[in-house]
Computed example of a mutant assay.
Amino acid sequence: MEIKVEKLINEQKQKTVSLITLEKRLKKRLGDEVSPWFYKELANAILALEEKDIIEPFKNAKTYSRDARIKEKYKKKKALMVDEKTLKQELLTSFHQNISVSYYLKHLEEYHDMKEKVKMISEFLKGCYENMPYLSVNERSYEIFEEEKFLASKEGKKLLANLKLSLETLYCYETYEPFFHIGIARTKNENILIVENKDTYFSIKKLFLENIHSWDNIKFSMIIYGEGNKITRSYEYLEEGHRLAPPLPSF
C-alpha cells in the first residue's frame, strides 16, 4: 500500500495532498483488490511517508474521518524512490526455505506492501517442528498475525498462493458451518432431505422419529435444517459427517 500511495502522490503536480481525493484515486487504481482493511492500510502508509519526511500535515488540517491518526490535508516535501535492489536482496536471503519468492521478485510493489506479513509467516515456519499440533485457520491466523480472519480472507488466500504455501504447511485446517440434522447418510446413494424452514424442519423431524422416513414415496435417511441458503456453506461439513459416521451394525 505504501508504494501505491507514494506513487499517486508523486504523480500529482499539486503540492497539497487531499486525503479524500487520494482515497478515491487509490480505490479506483486498486479496483477489485480493495482490502477490508483499506482505511487502516492507507493510514499506515501515510504515517510511514510522514515518518520518512515525504509529506507533512498542514497545521490547521482536520482529522481524517476514517482514521484519527492522520489528517485530511498534507503537503509534499520530497520524493523517495523505492530501492528495488534492496527488496530483491531481502526476498532472496531473508525468508524460510519453504517460501517461494518467485512471484514477488516480479511484483516488488506488491511485496513492499505485504512484506511484514511475509516476515511473520517466515518466522512462524522457522519455529515449526515435527508433529506440531494443528489449529483451526482462524486460531493460526491470530497466532501469526494477531488478526483472526486474515488467513481465511481473500487477501490471505492470495498471499499464501503467491508464496506457494498451503494451510497444511501452516499446520491448520478450515472449519465449516455446522447445521442441525437428524439421522445420517452412510452411503453416497442415500437421499438427504434439506428443509429451509425451521417450523417445517421440526414437524418433519417429529415424523422421522416416528419412523416415517419418506416423502412423496422418496425415502431419505437424513433431514437437514438448511436455514435458507446457509446450507451451501456447509457442504464440506456434511462430507466430514459422512466420513465420521459409524458403520451399520452387523448381525
Rank of each mutant, 00 (worst) to 15 (best):
S35M: 07
L49C: 11
E239N: 13
I192T: 15
Q14D: 15
L160H: 04
F38Q: 09
I218T: 15
Y129I: 05
K119S: 10
R186C: 00
Y176V: 01
I3Q: 09
M132G: 10
N197T: 05
M1Q: 01
R140L: 06
F124H: 08
Y104V: 00
G31V: 03
K4A: 07
E90S: 02
D216A: 13
E143N: 13
Y111D: 02
V34E: 13
S136E: 08
E90H: 15
L42K: 04
D199E: 12
K88L: 05
F251Y: 11
K40T: 13
Q14S: 14
K59R: 15
K7F: 12
L47M: 10
E146M: 10
K115Y: 12
G241M: 15
C128G: 01
K71F: 10
S18R: 12
S94W: 11
K188S: 07
G183H: 09
R69N: 04
I54R: 01
W215Y: 12
E23N: 08
K76S: 02
M81N: 11
A161D: 03
E240N: 11
E236Y: 02
S153I: 00
K149G: 02
N131Q: 15
I20W: 05
G127K: 13
A45P: 05
G127Y: 03
W37T: 04
I3D: 02
A185L: 03
E143I: 08
V17I: 14
E116A: 09
L160Q: 03
F38M: 10
S122R: 02
L91P: 00
E110Q: 12
L165S: 09
E90C: 10
E143D: 05
G226W: 01
K71Y: 01
R29F: 06
K106H: 09
C128D: 07
Y134S: 13
I194L: 12
K206L: 05
Y176D: 05
H96C: 05
F124D: 13
N211H: 13
K85L: 14
R233D: 09
A61C: 11
N131K: 14
T200I: 13
K158P: 00
K158E: 02
L238K: 07
D67T: 06
E227S: 10
E240L: 14
P247L: 08
Y237A: 06
A245P: 03
Y225L: 13
W215R: 10
K157E: 12
K27F: 08
L159W: 00
I192L: 09
S153F: 04
D32Y: 10
E41K: 14
K219I: 08
R243G: 04
Y237F: 14
T200N: 15
A61G: 11
Y134A: 10
E110P: 01
P133M: 14
L163N: 00
Y39H: 15
I99G: 08
E130G: 01
R69H: 05
F202M: 11
S65E: 15
